[in-house]
Design a protein around this nucleic acid. Structure first.
Lengths: 112, 112
DNA sequence: CACGCTTGTAAGCTTTCACTTACGTAAGCG
DNA sequence: CGCTTACGTAAGTGAAAGCTTACAAGCGTG
């Protein structure tokens, strides 16, 4: 069975630890050790997660001396999002907009 | 270990067969047997997939006599999308809009 | 160059996943 | 009421995932 990009992406996103890793390095790049320090799991375990995320294109790696800095790659995630949105052409957009409207409404009501 | 909604949703989306099932019943509801006929796997296998999708909230079930009609539940998927988008506040939206712009540009160029 | 960091990789183990066959159950029909 | 149709569920199996400990490799510094 072949292994498409979409497939590896969704498989990578299936693990909660990996999703948290993406969040960690979304706005700033961190070294493997710094990332690992945020979790209970051992460092090798995190290193394997980093490998999965990287080969799925969700993380970019930049070597800086002895360490490797990881940073999230938004394009891969955007691709996954678009893939999900393509399931219902148009309808999901509408749902999201409505949800935002409700959110705004609730917020306004609270701050009144 | 607890099992959050987000977790079950992403785990359900990890399987390619399940993603295809969602696409199948996105715009129309189908019976379990009709869904199964689209796949090589045996009917019980598909039935199990339907169970996973349903307990993740991605599918709704409506009993119609002896059969059960399944239909995709956009709200659950929209929640997953929003969760992904929350990783990079704002930035993913920008990426998507730019991708659409490029797409439009490419299409216009082709039809010239 | 030897030693200390920082990190990935190998090997092995346990759990989970997706699948199959066999069976149970409920609804329609003659 | 038997019988077929349309399903889900149980039990078992092979593969894959995720974790751990042990080890190897690269870089920087004294």
């Amino acid at each position: 069975m072949t292994m498409t990009d979409v497939d590896s992406t969704f498989r990578a996103l299936a693990d909660p630890t990996r999703r948290r890793i993406i969040q960690l390095v979304a706005s700033r790049s961190l070294s493997a050790g710094e990332i690992a320090s945020h979790f209970r799991a051992t460092r090798p375990a995190i290193s394997q997660h980093l490998g999965v995320l990287r080969s799925a294109g969700l993380l970019s790696e930049q070597r800086k001396g002895a360490r490797r800095l990881y940073r999230a790659e938004p394009k891969a995630l955007a691709a996954a999002i678009e893939h999900l949105q393509s399931f219902w052409p148009g309808r999901l957009e509408a749902l999201k907009i409505e949800a935002e409207r409700r959110e705004r409404q609730r917020r306004d009501q609270r701050s009144r």
